[in-house]
Design a protein around this nucleic acid. Structure first.
Lengths: 213, 213
DNA sequence: TGACTTCGGATAGTACAGGTATCCAATATA
DNA sequence: TATATTGGATACCTGTACTATCCGAAGTCA
C-alpha cells in the first residue's frame, strides 16, 4: 500500500508518519521508485504499537525505539531480552544508592525472590519513598494485601505467556506496557464499586451520590 | 522558617520553589516584611506532595493544582470531591463517543456496578482499544484474573480509608496517585518471581539468567 | 554604621519532546 | 498532458517545567 493508505488505515497524520520514519521507529517501505514506496500490514501494526506505547503507556519515543529494537531482534538469550525490554518501560527513577531499604523490606515481607539490579526494584524504592515523604507510608497490612493480589495477577500473566522466544518477548513487553493502564483503570472502577457496596446501608444520607474514589 | 530552610529541607532548588509559588501550587509564606516571609511545616509537606505527584505519579502541574485545590477545600459533598479529585489524575483519554463497548463488556463481565461518566471508564476503553489495536486483546480469562485480583485490592483500600471528609479526600487522591507506581513496580517484580518459580525445574539451560519479564 | 547577604518579585531565557508545515523535484494516475 | 501524490529535507511551532538574572529593600554580622 502507499503512504496515503497507511495514513488512512492508522488514523495518523502524514507528517507524523514521516516523523516516525525519520526517527527510525518505523522501517521505510520497500522503495518501488524514486517517489514511491510500498508499505505492508506490518507497517500498520507497527504504527498501532507505537501509538499504543506512546499514548496509552506514556513511553517517550526514545524508549519506544529501544523496546521495538528488542522485539525485532530478541537475540538468543530470552531472559536478557525480557530484562532489557521491560527495563526500558517507564517510569525511570534517577540513580541512587544500591540500598533500596524500603523496597527490600517490602519484597522480603512478601516472600518474593528478587534481583535488586532489576529496574523495577529502584522504581519500587522511589515510589515508596515518595509515598512516605507525602505522609502516606504503607502499613505492613497494606503491603500484604497488595502482594497477595499482585502475586495472583503476575502468576496468571506468566502462565499465559506464549512459549516461542520472539513471541514471549513481544508478549512480555507489550503486555506489561499495555495492560498497566488497564489495571489502573480497573482499580479506579473497582474502588468506586467497593465504596458503593461498603457504604450502602451505612450512614448514607439521601440525595448523596455514590462515591467515586 | 525562611525560604533557604525550605529549600534545604525539601531538597528543591530555590528557583523551583519560586516557580511553584508563582504557579499557585504552593501558598505564599506569612509575610513578615517586604523581603521576608515565614514558611511552616505545612509548606515542607506541600512541596513533598507536589514533587511526589509530579515525579512519581507523573501528573502535569496543571492537574496537580486541581488536585491540591480539591484537597484544600473538599466542599460538603465527599463523593463529588472524591470524583473530581481522582478524575484529575492521569491519564487523560481524549473525548470519544459515549459508547465504551469494550469497557462496558469488561466491567459487566466482572459484575461491577459502574458509572460510565466516571473518567476511569474512558481510560479503560482507551487502554483496551489500544491493546486490541496492538494485537493483544484481552481474553475473558485474563479479565477474570485481573478483576479478581484488583477487586480484592480495591476492597482493602476502601476498608482502610479514614472516615473524616477532608482526610478521606486526601487519602483517596494521594493513595490513588502514589500507590499506582507501587503497584506497577510490584507487578514487575512479581512477574520476575513468578517466572522464576514456574520455569525452575522446567527446560532451563544452565548458565541462563532467570527471567526478568 | 557599613559591608555583605538574603529575600520577594518580576521577567526573560533554556531545554527538551513531539510533532507540523512547507518546499522541492520526481513520478503516478486520469 | 494536467493534476495529484510521494520521498526527502528542513524549518518551524507548541507546551511543559524549569533556570537564570536582575532589582531594590531589608536583615545580619563586625
Amino acid at each position: 500500500m502507499r503512504v496515503s493508505e497507511l495514513v488512512q488505515r492508522t488514523g495518523t497524520p502524514l507528517a507524523t508518519i514521516k516523523y516516525y520514519l525519520r526517527e527510525g521507529l518505523l522501517p521505510a517501505g520497500r522503495s518501488t521508485a524514486a517517489t514511491q514506496a510500498d508499505y505492508t500490514e506490518e507497517h500498520v501494526r507497527r504504527v498501532a504499537v507505537i501509538r499504543a506505547l506512546s499514548e496509552v503507556a506514556g513511553l517517550p519515543l526514545a524508549k519506544i525505539r529501544q523496546v521495538l529494537a528488542v522485539i525485532d531482534v530478541p537475540g538468543d538469550d530470552l531472559f536478557a531480552a525480557l530484562g532489557t525490554a521491560v527495563g526500558a518501560l517507564p517510569p525511570y527513577p534517577r540513580e541512587q544508592g544500591d540500598d533500596l531499604p524500603r523496597a527490600r523490606a517490602a519484597v522480603e515481607r512478601l516472600g518474593m525472590r528478587w534481583d535488586p539490579d532489576y529496574p523495577a526494584a529502584a522504581q519500587l524504592e522511589h515510589a515508596l519513598a515518595a509515598a512516605e515523604a507525602a505522609g502516606l507510608p504503607p502499613t505492613g497490612e497494606r503491603l500484604d494485601a497488595y502482594g497477595r493480589a499482585i502475586g495472583a495477577l503476575a502468576e496468571y500473566d506468566i502462565r499465559a505467556m506464549p512459549h516461542g522466544a520472539g513471541s514471549a518477548v513481544e508478549y512480555a513487553v507489550l503486555g506489561t506496557a499495555l495492560y498497566e493502564p488497564v489495571l489502573l483503570a480497573l482499580r479506579r472502577i473497582a474502588h468506586q464499586d467497593a465504596a458503593r457496596r461498603l457504604l450502602e446501608g451505612s450512614a448514607e444520607r439521601p440525595g448523596e451520590r455514590p462515591p467515586a474514589g
